[in-house]
Design a protein around this nucleic acid. Structure first.
Lengths: 149, 149
DNA sequence: TATTGTTATACTCTATAACTATA
DNA sequence: TATAGTTATAGAGTATAACAATA
């Protein structure tokens, strides 16, 4: 058996996952986008126009799924499909002005959320907590990599 | 602007949410159940047979949705619908032997996962981290409650 | 031959609204 | 009247497989 402290930690983590997920869904819905589509915008905002294949790899979903997500984003005016300059098979999914504005809005909301969640923490406490999260992320990535082998 | 330490903390938290979600999906799929259906079993295992209305309230989904989730769990042999002793409108969703066995298996797997994730932490580090998670959960619940008003 | 993105198909999860049986 | 759960309907997200265009 694992000790009770580590069990409690995982319980809290899973609870946070559920609560954060619900909160994000609601917040994103108010902004007119879904939790599946928003990451498409984040990837493009961070890395520039991407092919659908690149988006599928980044987001770990099937190419067919990306077709549907991009269809929705095009219909809502957040991205366009532009011809790829070197490869006529591919399209470059590109942010529109509305897409860039939405990404900026989402970033501002996330910043405000950060303030509400952690604004009253002492810097040292927060730094220690952040290191713990970092360590947990790294460990989890190790486990996932190991499982893939 | 929020300070960089709190931004980093939220980033890690969101990253953990994504990674944990993917990991859980795969693990649950290997056990023949989905991330939407598993919590139905957890609630019943913890609280005993429940009506569908109670399950819908516990899981924050619509009654119609519970009908579908329970349909799937019945088809897979994990639960049965039993008549409610006092209310002929209601059904009591009850774990079968296979359902109890699956819950036990999921609990064992979660325990093993806990060990892999936190097994090498010093007790004091883990306790501090767990308190941080606790504080974050509580704060998030406050925010959600405040937003609901 | 291999790759990009699509069409075809199917399943899960989710919701609202109308309805039946019961309270 | 109100509640429990269903049928009817709809839409998003996900996947695999077959295919067309291009590399």
């Amino acid at each position: 058996m694992s000790d009770s402290a580590s069990i409690a930690a995982l319980d809290r983590l899973l609870q946070l996952t559920v609560l954060l997920g619900r909160d994000m869904d609601e917040s994103l819905a108010r902004d007119g986008i879904s939790r599946s589509r928003a990451p498409v915008l984040w990837v493009i905002a961070a890395a520039g126009p991407r092919t659908q294949r690149e988006l599928a790899d980044s987001l770990h979903v099937s190419p067919r799924n990306i077709t549907g997500l991009v269809d929705g984003l095009v219909a809502d005016g957040f991205v366009t499909r532009e011809p790829h300059p070197n490869d006529r098979r591919a399209t470059l999914v590109t942010l529109t002005g509305a897409g860039e504005a939405l990404v900026a809005k989402l970033a501002a909301e996330q910043d405000e959320f950060t303030r509400q969640l952690f604004g009253d923490w002492k810097p040292a406490e927060l730094a220690a907590f952040s290191r713990g999260l970092d360590r947990t992320v790294n460990r989890l990535q190790q486990l996932i990599e190991a499982a893939a082998t």
